[in-house]
Design a protein around this nucleic acid. Sequence first.
DNA 1: CTGAAAGCGCTTACAG
DNA 2: CTGAAAGCGCTTACAG
Lengths: 341, 341
Amino acid sequence: MTRETVVPRVAPTLEAVAAAAGVSRSTVSRVVNGSSQVSPEVLAAVTSAIERLNYVPNRAARSLANRQTMAIALVVPEDTQRFFGDPFFAEVMLGITSVLEDSDYVLNLQLAKPSDPSEKAMRYLLGGNVDGAIVVSHHSGDDFFTTLDATIPVVFGGRPFQPEHHPSSFVDVDNAAGAALATRHLIGLGRTKIATISGPADMQAALDRHHGWSDTLREAGLDASLAATGDFTMHGGAQAMRELLEREPELDAVFAASDLMASGAVSVLRRAGRRIPEDVAVVGFDDSPAALSGEIRLTTVHQPSRIMGAEMARMLLARLRGETVETSRLMPTHLVARDSA
Amino acid sequence: MTRETVVPRVAPTLEAVAAAAGVSRSTVSRVVNGSSQVSPEVLAAVTSAIERLNYVPNRAARSLANRQTMAIALVVPEDTQRFFGDPFFAEVMLGITSVLEDSDYVLNLQLAKPSDPSEKAMRYLLGGNVDGAIVVSHHSGDDFFTTLDATIPVVFGGRPFQPEHHPSSFVDVDNAAGAALATRHLIGLGRTKIATISGPADMQAALDRHHGWSDTLREAGLDASLAATGDFTMHGGAQAMRELLEREPELDAVFAASDLMASGAVSVLRRAGRRIPEDVAVVGFDDSPAALSGEIRLTTVHQPSRIMGAEMARMLLARLRGETVETSRLMPTHLVARDSA
DNA sequence: CTGAAAGCGCTTACAG
DNA sequence: CTGAAAGCGCTTACAG
């Protein structure tokens, strides 16, 4: 259209640096990649040329040549709302980025639809765009992610559904044990009508926590039928609480499988005139910031979310380096007694 | 090390598809890229070969050849905590992803340190990894981002600092006008000692909102000296409120430059025995979910965050297409009167 | 409508 | 320690 007088500031290439330093491309490539096979003088000349030209290697060319992208994907099969709404994800991401910072890898966040990764997301993950992936919040419909491991290494945050089908590597806590901790605490408080608000049945962690609750109750000879399902959100927790209250107005305790759901339950209980913890004791799970931001300081099962994120990253990086690493890492939980139970 | 008996499931290339379909690579490339210059029969043959081999184009090779990455970066110069803590960012990201979904672009999230993007982030942005960038939450120290536009198109969320230096394209609201709306509302309520909690002075939006407040006050002949600075977080808002209360215990209104800061202020005011809105009227800014999740339903200045995100993406995509687009887009604000003022 | 060929900017054996 | 050359998997004029 218009006459362009602007010099098309093309990014300098290896070639240009080589010319400027008076050496071959191979040599420049060596210094860029930190090879020790370079004489001090040449090193200096090349380094200064790089500085002078402000050279940055072209990632596409590099990837094409050595088949590494130096990128890893963080896949969260949840909608944006839930991703941002639950502090758990922030903590995990914080842990991941903290270890990636010290590496040459960059993180690509991929929010996918639960149990139905988009065509686009699948192509992205399979199209050689990342060297590995971390999948947090796996749902049972997501077969794609468990089989993805055949193409690139993937580490799950939380034991994925059907690991027997495709043995996946993951970092998790012993969810059943954590739930048992919470339930025993409630029993120790003398409660007898102990309900639970479970997470979605298509998530392994939700199932495990549910079983931890029911097994503990049965061992104690208590009824384990008072269960409702939430979706790990505050709203879902409130909804489930209403249902439980209707079914059993006399309930005196509830174990919610997440702090957010516990918060929702607390609101409903109070609005229904129950004092917490006097009338109804509530225990959450996560010990995320959400445990402290609600109407009452939540008693909850602590899981080291940030550290778990860091472990996921470390595990993936180790596999990327070709090291033999354990397929799973289980982190400890503990009960944090505060005001709600 | 060990003898590998596993077939190294190499991803099929264009070449392989061409062979399978009995055509040239050029032809396969054409159908992959949706060229119309292909006969129906050949189209069918190639399509079926692609299906059969499960072919996914190698992105690095494609990028190298046509100099497009089909990726754009969302850069947020804030730490992970604040990024996840403020619903504003979630809304913007939601808007961005909604328009990107219908395109072939993927989004790469880059959290950078305020006023000091890491070496790594800079290299990433300059290294041909993305075709363009959206920068939300720009601080005055970030010269890198304003100059980045010389290399790849960047659209700012919120007018960047020093746009005169490097005319940047951005989408924003008229922050001063929004603040004036809030302030006039407070004046209309008969308040006379109207304070403000501003955002950080290194952000243009914070400055603009502050001026909207002070100009309106001066026009009304009221004192405009009661100002404290927060950092856009709840904690920062609380801190600033304490300071204001100490300086002027008689204050009867406060305009906070964000809902999160308004929430922090509300807590402090109540703890100090003030009734809201009777004793002190509070107006926030954003109308994000945070306006409804606190102790009181906040009266606030609505800005269409999600739509703004969508506009940023649309604007960037248009520039990527080589279209001539306006350099800035200003969205409207309006006051939402609820319970706090 | 289709194919042969050059080129995108790197890395990596292979010689020397 | 250094360089020439092939190759990574695509796209894109250029012919035909």
